[in-house]
């Protein structure tokens, strides 16, 4: 009995989807637009995350030691720093390594190379490069280095870069909140458009709904096919959207990567194919079923 009704509900949904051809196509197309929008917003978020993470990765504090500081002393400071909870990573760059790096950077410049060769001793200083666990932790780390009773430091470049750090920090948090705000607003608009399209489609069926009720159909027997149609709409529109995203990310991906230097959207698409589809599919079904549920409620009151 239960399974008979269920079978009939599905059959009625498929039949109604097929016989209302134009309305079904129009609904699916509008939902494709909505889901493309949602998918693009996910892509945008991924891009933003990757870019911001990369910028953050480039930020560090360098502590320069005086020329005559012993390596033992430097390693002692490094150990002290490692024990701080704010510190993620401390890299020791010895004087020799610093020189090699410097030479490497200027290997095409004959003047600098020959000037270095003139010098008898290494003019470069040993460095500790410090990465904090979080953006906000650079300030306390710098304070620790300045007031920790170390006298071996020549200079700490945090103060020099402080203004820049602060600026990057505020840009990052601003971009994040703006991105989130824009995403939610656009997502909501996309949802409203799809919601109203479905409502309009069901509005044309209001007479049929009342007839079904008067013939003695239960609420769920009448509503069921509309909900199943919502699932069909959601499924089809997410599949179509996925098919559109493939060439779209293939084209956009490398261009965006060149510009932002973050991730390649096409490789994001291929690597997360299933999860991405599942997200869009769930979004489609939610829009389809929720809209159908709300739209039928009003005409089922009979």
């Amino acid at each position: 009995m239960m399974s008979t009704s269920f079978k009939r509900v599905i059959r009625n949904a498929l039949m109604s989807f097929w016989r209302n051809g134009m309305v079904s196509v129009a609904t699916v197309l509008v939902m494709v637009l909505a889901i493309l929008m949602i998918g693009s917003l996910i892509m945008f978020q991924v891009l933003l995350d990757a870019t911001l993470a990369e910028i953050k990765e480039k930020v560090d504090v360098s502590a320069y030691f005086k020329q005559d500081t012993s390596e033992v002393e430097i390693l002692r400071v490094q150990e002290r720093l490692r024990q701080l909870p704010e510190v993620r990573e401390v890299t020791y760059v010895s004087q020799d390594e610093a020189l090699a790096l410097f030479k490497g950077r200027h290997k095409d410049n004959a003047l600098i190379s020959s000037a270095l060769d003139e010098l008898e001793e290494n003019p470069l200083r040993a460095i500790l490069r410090i990465r904090a666990t979080d953006q906000q932790n650079y300030e306390p780390i710098a304070r620790f280095l300045e007031n920790g009773g170390f006298d071996s430091f020549d200079k700490i470049d945090y103060r020099k870069n402080e203004a820049l750090f602060k600026r990057i920090e505020s840009v990052i948090s601003f971009t994040y909140s703006v991105g989130l705000g824009v995403t939610s607003v656009l997502g909501f608009i996309a949802f409203l458009v799809a919601f109203n399209t479905i409502r309009l489609a069901i509005y044309t069926s209001r007479e049929e709904i009342s007839i079904m009720r008067l013939v003695g159909a239960s609420t769920w027997y009448v509503r069921g096919p509309f909900l199943v149609e919502g699932v069909i709409h959601g499924f089809l529109s997410s599949v179509i959207s996925m098919l559109i995203f493939w060439p779209a990310t293939l084209w956009v991906g490398p261009r965006v990567k060149d510009f932002f230097g973050g991730v390649d959207l096409f490789s994001f698409y291929t690597q997360n194919l299933f999860l991405f589809f599942f997200t869009l599919f769930m979004a489609g079904i939610t829009i389809g079923v929720f809209s159908s549920f709300v739209a039928t409620r009003r005409y089922l009151k009979i």
Partner: peptide, 30 residues
């Protein structure tokens, strides 16, 4: 409602269903 058969001036058939399906609908719903 299933114990009461109703006939209206404007027929009130389901436009997307054939004559057979319209009649069958009342039984399916029951």
């Amino acid at each position: 409602r299933r114990k009461i058969g109703t006939v209206f001036q404007d027929f009130r058939l389901l436009p997307q269903k054939t004559a057979y399906e319209n009649v069958a609908f009342a039984l399916e719903a029951a």
